[in-house]
Design a binder for these strands. Sequence first.
DNA 1: GGCATTTTGTTCCCTGGCGGGACGAATCTC
DNA 2: GAGATTCGTCCCGCCAGGGAACAAAATGCC
Lengths: 397, 397
Amino acid sequence: MRRMTARPANAHQERVLKLLRDEGPRSRAELSGLIDLSRSKVAVEVDRLMSAGLLVVDGLAASRGGRRSHRIRLSPELRFLGVDIGATSVDVAVTNAELEVLGHLNEPIDVREGPVAVFEQVVVMAGKLKAAGLAESFDGAGVGIPGPVRFAEGVPVAPPIMPGWDGFPVRKALSQVLGCPVMVDNDVNLMALGERHAGVAKRVDDFLCVKIGTGIGCGIVVNGQVHRGASGSAGDIGHIQVDPDGHPCACGNRGCLEAHFSGAALARDALAAVESGHSTGALADRLAASGTLTAADVGAAANVGDAVALDLIRAGGDHVGHVIAGLVSFFNPSLVVLGGRVTGLGHGLLAAIRTQVYRRSLPLATGNLPIVLGDLGPVAGAIGAARLITDHLFSPA
Amino acid sequence: MRRMTARPANAHQERVLKLLRDEGPRSRAELSGLIDLSRSKVAVEVDRLMSAGLLVVDGLAASRGGRRSHRIRLSPELRFLGVDIGATSVDVAVTNAELEVLGHLNEPIDVREGPVAVFEQVVVMAGKLKAAGLAESFDGAGVGIPGPVRFAEGVPVAPPIMPGWDGFPVRKALSQVLGCPVMVDNDVNLMALGERHAGVAKRVDDFLCVKIGTGIGCGIVVNGQVHRGASGSAGDIGHIQVDPDGHPCACGNRGCLEAHFSGAALARDALAAVESGHSTGALADRLAASGTLTAADVGAAANVGDAVALDLIRAGGDHVGHVIAGLVSFFNPSLVVLGGRVTGLGHGLLAAIRTQVYRRSLPLATGNLPIVLGDLGPVAGAIGAARLITDHLFSPA
DNA sequence: GGCATTTTGTTCCCTGGCGGGACGAATCTC
DNA sequence: GAGATTCGTCCCGCCAGGGAACAAAATGCC
């Protein structure tokens, strides 16, 4: 199995590679039409990419009334690693160059243990995937981390929930231990990239991707490109104020969205509800069984119809929806995608968010606006991470 | 005086034209360096643009140790019209190709009288500017209107404050009566373009431009380009909710930003304050003098230290600042520009907004974030409009 | 003042990118 | 089997564009 040796030499080669990645195998003649280049020129560039080991001929396609065409595809030997580091767990996925997930691992971590410990575990996980025969080596890796990133350097900047990571050269360090090129981005941005590549936002150029988990963030895609902002903190909507007299937040302010709706907030409110005697059913049982309550417990209780759980989810959805309504008015996206673990809370959450947005935003902005759950589930971030590194490697140097 | 006959034939010519527009006259040698093209090639393209009547040689520059260079500039005969239609007045400006304002008129209108009446007046104003010797004809016109626009066609869509304009083919109609190419956009977007071209946002690629006047809107510049959104309503922040129990708004909801702070809201609140006996000074005098109160009265009263006026402005600034704080967290701009008539309210408004943003948004997003007033005053929109049409005409067809 | 130096603008040549046409190969249809 | 289609390849020619060389016009040193 050979490693990817070269980067594309020009913009034509870049377009060929990205088209084959995003749309799958094509013949030379099809490529010629799709990237508006003569057949002779396409043949030349394809030949060069084949001798660079990036493309292969994968048999013949069915005839369409004449000579059968060669099916050109990205080398099936290329392997990329998508790493999605969350606050409490990591997802590591192996993909081919078409970003199909060949294998996937999820393990719990504690991001507060610092980058070195986390990277050790990631390397071990990558090793397990290799041992399973999914890859001999990796041609590149994308990494998502739950905090703002200075994208050009691949370095976290002032991440609130990741003490010890500030300024750590994630890109350089991981590139060394993994032995391949690495690109780093915020986890929410990568989820947006993933959903845009293979999920519900395919071919959508302007959309928002709201991830609700330990915290709340929003990926912003403008013109098909992720908007990262002046300091890499764009999409950081967890600390928008939803109630001036609300709960105190770890950031020092009051009434932040995250303080009112997130994994931790939901658990806190559920506990309070049970202890004050408001819960009559499933939630109390779960508390009695495990001694504590988590967001997942609330979701499970809601699924069996627990009224308190349903109320909590609805109240949270109202808060998120209120914020999203503002963002929709401001940004006027053509799609809103919801993702993250907390979206497993059932249909009540989505309904509450939709109600708020459709009621609060102007009809012109919402008239044609789908608000939907992401397609890709927990691997969205890892797929986006793989896409990030291929975007980089498939661009001319 | 000859009319602009041709559009640039290729991307090189486009770059030359836009560079000369934005940076002023340059020599061929300088152009060669600035657009990374050989001197021979630059000479060829400049020659072509000169015979198309778009460029001229404007004397010799001072020597820099060798042969003196020819100063190449955009033809000084080109004339563009910038039209900024507001709810209650129009600004019409004549510019040269470098977007310097050669003359400027402002006249009151009522946008509710419909497009035909307004365009008649605009044509008369353009005639006055011609009669003053500022132009013989126009090579293009940019037009801003106070509502959402379907940009590709230049047609207003569902503008709330402009009954009778919905779907009216503004671009086509104005192009006919003015006899030149026309581009149409939202007035706030054009203010942002203006400030980016010649104002405080020069060379800034990601910023927000908040215009406070009859309504409140926000121009969004991403990657140097205006973001207009899926239905042309991006930046419509006037109806973001700032108080669930707040004033009713014309849009049917409660507590919209515009219902709490805008020209009309300020006048309403000032009147209420005086009538309930809270105002002791300047405001009451002004009411007695004219029988009514406007936002301008509040500003004047604040400038002479009237406490009620200052309070009203501060409360309004708190509301706007609260919304902007959310947008800053979300978008992470590198600059926030404030413009529009209400910014003449004095320093209290700016201070209140700054306080809210710096207190509410995360330090990472605000650490290096200037919040400033626009430079260009009432002509910002007209300059942006002229820029819009040159952007169009200086691009290859 | 003379001469070397520097900068600009122009001309000329050569290369490389790329399109188009011709051709052969492979396949379908009649 | 003949003609039509489609695909891939080869070859020719155009031209965009870079680089070198040169002329023109200025500076500055001696």
